[in-house]
């Protein structure tokens, strides 16, 4: 539907009962994207062991799809290697959620970016430790 406004059932499930909500104290990686002015702000915390995302948490300010995509990306990333997790795209998240309304595809589908930012943060910390 070109003018679809409503959300899929999957989006509503994740919106009403989001998975992996919260923070990780002293995370191995932290990513933050969006800003409250635009109406969407997400942060993702990761715990990494042997190159695998062992634990992941998120907090999100935003609309239904912002919250649902955050929840979904944490599900998709958990247990994956960093390399696999880097390959998770915005489209993957939308597909797993059985689609998003067209106008939500860009503005409120930042969760994959937040995940990638967290992994990037982890890698930069590793680099610093190695060189420092």
């Amino acid at each position: 539907m070109a003018d679809q406004i409503g959300y899929s059932q999957k989006v509503m499930e994740h919106f009403m009962n989001p998975h992996n909500v919260g923070v990780i104290e002293n995370p191995d990686g932290y990513g933050k994207v969006g800003n409250p002015v635009c109406g969407d702000l997400m942060e993702i915390f990761i715990r990494v062991r042997d190159d695998v995302i062992e634990d992941i948490r998120f907090r999100t300010f935003g609309c239904g799809s912002a919250i649902a995509t955050s929840s979904m990306v944490t599900d998709l990333a958990k247990g994956k290697t960093l390399e696999e997790a880097m390959k998770i795209t915005r489209d993957d998240v939308a597909t797993e959620l059985e689609g998003l309304p067209p106008r939500k595809m860009h503005c409120s589908n930042l969760a994959a970016d937040a995940l990638h930012a967290a992994i990037q943060d982890f890698r930069e910390k590793q680099k610093k430790e190695a060189t420092g």
Binding site: M16, G39, D40, G62, C63, G64, A66
Partner: peptide
């Protein structure tokens, strides 16, 4: 908090 999520949650 954001209004669309308020609307969705109230709807539920």
């Amino acid at each position: 908090i954001e209004g669309e999520s308020i609307q969705l949650a109230m709807n539920m």
